[in-house]
């Protein structure tokens, strides 16, 4: 919740927290680009080698639609990715920090 700036009642019990995660899972994990601003959406599309629709049509909704069409994985894949986190969480890890982390632990 904190990582994704989602407010939650301090006194929430586990069940309530689980429901909150469930409600926000799609926008935070499966389709994180839903929360991006137009700059980041455009930068992503350019980086992925797509033509960015020219200025007038580049409103947020159409950009989100375009990003959605070229996103790397489906919702189901995002779901199962968190069952094998160790396989990808180190993919762009800072090399020096990996040494320090292994040393510390």
């Amino acid at each position: 919740m904190s990582d994704n700036d989602i407010p939650f009642p301090k006194a929430a019990d586990r069940k309530e927290l689980q429901n909150l995660v469930k409600d926000n899972w799609q926008s935070a994990v499966q389709e994180p680009y839903q929360k991006w601003d137009t700059d980041r959406l455009q930068a992503y599309l350019k980086d992925a080698g797509h033509d960015v629709a020219s200025d007038a049509q580049a409103n947020k909704d159409s950009l989100v639609k375009q990003v959605k069409g070229s996103w790397y994985e489906s919702g189901d894949q995002a779901q199962s990715a968190y069952e094998s986190l160790k396989d990808w969480v180190f993919d762009r890890y800072v090399l020096f920090c990996a040494i320090a982390t292994c040393t510390t632990h």
């Binding site: 994180p32 990808w88 993919d91 762009r92």
Partner: peptide, 12 residues
């Protein structure tokens, strides 16, 4: 939040 995105970029 963006670690998964980093992994996608590495793979592509």
């Amino acid at each position: 939040r963006n670690a998964r995105l980093g992994s996608f970029r590495a793979n592509s």
